[in-house]
Write a protein that binds this DNA or RNA. Structure first.
Lengths: 162, 162
DNA sequence: ACTCGTCAGTTCATAAACTAAACGGACATG
DNA sequence: CATGTCCGTTTAGTTTATGAACTGACGAGT
């Protein structure tokens, strides 16, 4: 499988990763959520090579996660801003941040404040039907019936085989 | 910044990506959640080069997300199974899958069933304090006070500058 | 006018990562 | 003894990323 064929996969995880699965893309988006908007900010924050910053920003604009907005004409200057689609990754960023803080060495160096209630919080993934937190192991994933097809390997199983 | 320095960052998103930010790692983990456990299953499912499959599985074992368990001695055969740490990525996988289904072309080709209530559901990220869904834009991220330090660029802002 | 600095990239040569294809060993089957 | 399966490794070639330097448009200072 080539990287750029991933977008054509049926699996939504594969399609998501085709957009944000690049090594640096989520770090660029993190900086966007943190308020960064200019080329030099991303380059300084990530300390990766400038061609890569330029390439990633270009594809993010192309994919509609960021938009390039001119804020002055002379000299031409613009900022990269999150679109609605880009902002829709907030849930993912929260869960990713929370996982790293909870599970990895280094601990929780950042806090998230819910402006709705004003408190520091951790994201809790709940069920849209019963509103209870979704416990580890309490999920089965299957092909949606309308698209069911003979799969190469069945996905209609829980994890852990033996 | 080099890829392998990411694990030493303060930011939990950077540290998370040091573990799962590789191009293929989340696809391998997806297959694990779907029940895959053997080398040939991963190689067939991902259709990426076998050395990369071997390398990714090895680092996942090293990082403690998978464990390599012998299931027969002669010939020596083993399976890769999710550890507790690996299973703790369930939330992330759900949110990633849901985002792809909702926001990207291709639609929702898989469904998640919550075995707690028995219904098909979408993951909803809620606030651990007030239990309300966390709306887009309703989050501020800041350095945790005990680790507050003069940041190169302040992270204590919401997204969208101008 | 001349030099310096900022911003947003691009170009270039080199270094790292990935790739397909073939090979290896340890066994099982026929 | 030949073939097949499983789990990789080796090899050689291609792709991608890297740091460093460069371009170009402009503004500020002298």
């Amino acid at each position: 499988m080539k990287w750029d064929q991933l977008a054509d996969e049926t699996c939504p995880i594969a399609r998501s990763l085709a957009v944000i699965g690049d090594r640096w893309t989520l770090l660029i988006l993190r900086d966007c959520f943190a308020g960064a908007s200019r080329f030099e900010e991303f380059a300084a924050s990530l300390r990766i090579s400038r061609p890569v910053v330029a390439a990633r920003l270009a594809t993010l604009v192309e994919q509609g996660l960021l938009e390039k907005v001119a804020y002055q004409e002379r000299p031409p200057r613009h900022q990269y801003r999150l679109t609605r689609l880009g902002r829709s990754l907030q849930d993912l960023m929260l869960v990713l941040s929370s996982w790293g803080s909870r599970e990895l060495a280094g601990g929780g160096s950042v806090e998230h404040v819910h402006t709705g209630c004003g408190h520091v919080f951790e994201p809790v993934v709940t069920c849209s039907h019963c509103h209870e937190p979704v416990d580890v192991g309490a999920v089965r994933t299957r092909f949606a019936p309308r698209l069911a097809k003979p799969a190469e390997t069945s996905l209609d199983v829980t994890y852990g085989r033996g």
